[in-house]
Design a protein around this nucleic acid. Structure first.
Lengths: 355, 355
DNA sequence: CTGTTAGCGCATTCAA
DNA sequence: TTGAATGCGCTAACAG
């Protein structure tokens, strides 16, 4: 029904093997026959049968990218960057090989769906799998993911982690969440803030934990880590979204009216924090300073511009893509850290009392 | 190397065919043998070879979802909804069949990449393809997409359109962009506004055109469509993002200081509009009313809450997913329209002069 | 209800 | 440089 290799071969008056060689390009073929084959491919509008080719070659051109929340630009940027590394020859004519298909799978943060997708990709004999964003720390799930990963790795699928702690059998790009968070809080301390609220993400995520640890490390180093200072009490957990930031802010203000700064676990939360503060008649940064994390595109042009910690998400995603394709040598030890950078902007200033 | 059907068959002391039947589930098998097979599958941790099964069955369990911008929640919501329709049995044990793999492909709004992905999915013999969001109206490209679509359809791949104009060989869910936009502008007119700016999306997109037409239809019906009224002059095109809304607003204010309302082509743009107005010292809605389109989650809790037109994106995406799986009968004529609903909220009010 | 028999379309030996 | 032959792992008739 569909046109096959044999059809092309017949039209080009060569064998199927020759057509295959022309299309895969990794084998010497006479220029004249190559041209003839290519013309036949065009005329017939031949498109390789992926499954057949994957079966014969025991590997497919699928690359899976797992994300926690597809509606979050954090993941959109990373996933987009991974995809952008795939098409070596964008706009290549139909039927040509070598182009990988990077597909995004949205787990919604659910461990079950994460494993499910891993199985689905294993079934497809994916060339690579990229796991992005924080991991869920439940022991059973971590073990299950690790097991899946080594199974995938042992069957030839490259496994790349981007933004989560390393595991065996995977190349990892970790994010400097802890260091970035620490520098951010230090920035606020330097400005003179002492009563700093923290809006954290979901408790069981590695990203959440690392950023919170960085924050607390800075507080402790400043002698503000004790129970009496209420670091615990001034931490509220929520989701990585705007409304969590909004609600958490109201809760923080309830717990301590005299807060002078609020640190959010990411920029999206920070937006909600800003909205809540404004609704309460508080000015940023005059009454309360606000800081985020990630430096998503909207953060720089928010009003006021948001102080945050920049993670080079696009670069990280692109590198993860190259790693997934084996186009870039693995870092020593299979783990590389992506550095973060403090972006001090208008949403943070010295506290009112210190002025 | 990897464990195959034959291995499972040997262990369960049945034929390969029986194992296949147990796994696909669409054929009667004795309960006792079924149990034996399932146990063997578990013990061996067998996972079906997707390519092989796709080759033999001449159809795969891949479903492609094409989006224009993965970082935009508009697409995130639709794509997520499509995916949520796929896994009938979430958490199914490894190796079980029937689960489709919905994968998201980000075209970035580029016609070339759109065609590229279509080819890639055709190569994979995808079970279905869902094209979401506005289409690029360039004639060559429309013809190319239509050609690809019928080619896909004729080789058994279902083609579903969600949010763009119908084409042959595809089931289509169109959005009521025109009607919604018209009702939105009518709402402003009713409030008493006459000088209304419009921030449109990219000119060559169907969504952009439809929404703009709706706006102008309302203006014309109110006798405000003439050249002298400057409807043309009060329209600025940009991208569907926040910074475009910001810049466009400054431009609109330059063209007419006495504007009393600005309609944005979507909510994200509207956010930028609000930011720009605030930066100019204008209050919303006291000085200028603002309206958006789509009713994304953040719009209801923006400050002030954004007047917009609600599109049931999740429902539409879910329906597109069912259509893609053939689990829902096609609408008459292959085309159904998704209704929109005006959400009048706090960001629009009568103009100052009319108070 | 279960086993046997053929391919599905392509990549890759091995010869020529 | 090219062709012929083989098998990847699975599904779908067809028997039994």
């Amino acid at each position: 029904m569909a046109v096959t290799l044999a059809d092309v071969a017949a039209r080009a008056r060569v064998s199927a093997a020759t057509v295959s060689r022309v299309l895969s390009g990794n084998y010497p073929v006479a220029e004249s026959t190559r041209a003839r084959v290519l013309r036949a491919v065009d005329e017939l509008e031949y498109v390789v049968n992926g499954p057949a080719s994957a079966l014969a070659a025991a590997t497919s051109d699928l690359v899976g990218v797992l994300v926690n929340d597809i509606a979050d630009p954090f993941f959109g940027i990373i996933a987009g960057a991974v995809q952008s590394e795939m098409g070596s020859a964008v706009g290549a004519e139909s039927g040509r090989h070598g182009e990988k298909l990077a597909v995004i799978c949205n787990t919604g943060g659910s461990p079950e769906r994460e494993l499910n997708y891993l199985t689905l990709l294993q079934r497809q004999r994916a060339a690579a799998v990229v796991l992005t964003g924080g991991a869920v720390e439940h022991p059973d799930h971590m073990a299950a993911v690790a097991a899946k990963a080594s199974r995938l790795a042992s069957s030839g699928t490259r496994v790349v982690l981007c933004g989560r702690p390393p595991i065996e059998d995977a190349v990892t790009l970790t994010f400097d969440n802890r260091g970035g968070a620490r520098r951010l809080t230090e920035h606020l301390l330097t400005l003179g803030h002492r009563r700093i609220g923290y809006v954290a993400g979901p408790a069981e995520r590695t990203t959440t934990r690392d950023r919170l640890e960085g924050h607390r490390a800075a507080m402790s180093a400043a002698g503000l880590g004790g129970l009496s200072e209420g670091v615990e009490r001034l931490t509220v957990h929520g989701l990585y979204d705007r409304s969590s930031g909004y609600d958490a802010t109201l809760e923080l203000l309830r717990r301590d009216e005299a807060l002078t700064a609020i640190v959010a676990a990411n920029d999206t939360i920070a937006l909600g924090v800003c909205a809540a503060l404004r609704d309460q008649g508080l000015r940023i940064p005059d009454d309360v300073s606000v800081a985020g994390f990630d430096d998503l595109p909207f953060s720089a042009d928010a009003v006021p511009a948001l102080t945050t910690v920049r993670l080079p998400l696009h670069e990280a995603g692109a590198r993860a893509g190259r790693l997934a394709l084996g186009r870039e040598p693995q870092p020593p030890g299979g783990v590389a850290m992506v550095r973060s950078e403090l972006m001090a902007r208008a949403s943070t200033a010295p506290p009112r009392a210190a002025k």
